[in-house]
Design a binder for these strands. Sequence first.
DNA 1: CGCTGCTTTGAACAACTTCAACTTCTGTGG
DNA 2: CCACAGAAGTTGAAGTTGTTCAAAGCAGCG
Lengths: 250, 250
Amino acid sequence: MNKVIDISQLKTSCKNCSLSDLCLPHGLEQDDLEILDSVVKQKTPMQAGDHLFREDHRGKAVYAIRSGALKSYQIAKDGTERVIGFHLPGELVGFDYLADDNHHCSATALVTSSVCELPLANLDRLSGDIPGLQRQLIRIMSGEMNADRDLLFMLAKKSAEERLASLLLSLSSRYQKRGLSGDEFILPMSRTDIASYLGLTTETVSRLFSHFQDQGILTVERKSISIQDGVGLRKLVTDCAGNTDNAISM
Amino acid sequence: MNKVIDISQLKTSCKNCSLSDLCLPHGLEQDDLEILDSVVKQKTPMQAGDHLFREDHRGKAVYAIRSGALKSYQIAKDGTERVIGFHLPGELVGFDYLADDNHHCSATALVTSSVCELPLANLDRLSGDIPGLQRQLIRIMSGEMNADRDLLFMLAKKSAEERLASLLLSLSSRYQKRGLSGDEFILPMSRTDIASYLGLTTETVSRLFSHFQDQGILTVERKSISIQDGVGLRKLVTDCAGNTDNAISM
DNA sequence: CGCTGCTTTGAACAACTTCAACTTCTGTGG
DNA sequence: CCACAGAAGTTGAAGTTGTTCAAAGCAGCG
């Protein structure tokens, strides 16, 4: 019996990818998908800490996350890192280079992850072949901007408690969209990353987790989260305008 | 002598517009510009308080600002308004509808303003005629996202003082790009708008203006700003990673 | 002139940070 | 397999920054 795995079977295929509805292919025609498939490359798996791209480096591609989780961040002039976003499977990362061909942030794997590379270097040529591609890209970027706006709102006006609740609900809904449990999940990022993203300190984040647990809203054990009282959690962010289920986040 | 003004002379023309370098036409070929001209409509002037579009309404176009100033904002569930951005001549507003055809924020004139309407409803058709248009739109949106990131950083990590300094420097550099003075200008927005945008209270903003004036950094008289010590002002935001001259802001 | 709305200023208060100590986890080498 | 070192997370107490509440000043406009 031949147990050798046929490499060609493993080749990336947007057509067969379970994430295609969340990803760039969404809305493309079958024919276009095949053309897209021909340019999409699956990168070798990334270990936690590996970089997908770095700030100020020339950008070559947008990346679609297949598995794992990444964060994107910038380094401030004083050397401190600030987390811009967390990225889960089905989401796209790296648009930021399209403005001037350079990345404005770095992206690194939080856990073992795999991504697909969508080389948009010569976007014009590619879009000649796939008319709907640019349109879809614009749609995704526009959605991303709206998500950023919600985050902006959060940082501008919301209390520490509301911020953490928003993040947890966002992660919950994003996991749910992938068909995973929205009530029990593992946080792929550290407390420090969460604090940086929410504009708080690790101490405050840690205290909030304890606080939520005391209130019976969550069960927290290191990185494991179990949402006990989703209604209560949602109630904490009720006063906010923006919806929190930003499926797409840079 | 015929003093009647020829209406056709007043018709919008991207070709002759002094702002074309800041606006969508930047980078387009002469032929493409003429096609763009044929679809661009100049709207009747807006009075302060007039709306360009409203949250949750169907979007029909992206708008380029010719003169005046606008703000975009969302209404939170608790009814409070939150300002998302200020928009000066040469900047584009309204991309946010491209995600799902609905606007996610409202835009209103802060002073008497005029705008050009770029109907991108059937973007696909239009981009068949102007191949570079979608590319340019993607570039602008990507730049906008990067600008939002900087703002995000500001709200997450910067002190009230740094926030106001950043805004003033941003306005200064944007006025300068239009060929106006970067050191003396009139704020088109109220203290309340500034506070909402920066995630502060009007009281804090007011105190900061007084504070800056006491330090000899600014001369402030109601809406007139005169930057006395640009170096000092810049020093206040030195520790930040993001650049503050976001020419493009949604 | 006297209203209304926007801005400024003051004093008390609350939220989050900072600093510091301690606990728990993780991985590495003996 | 255990011990140890370092990183990550938790908890407490003091300190700051910006908010809240309150009131007064000031321009615009009927």
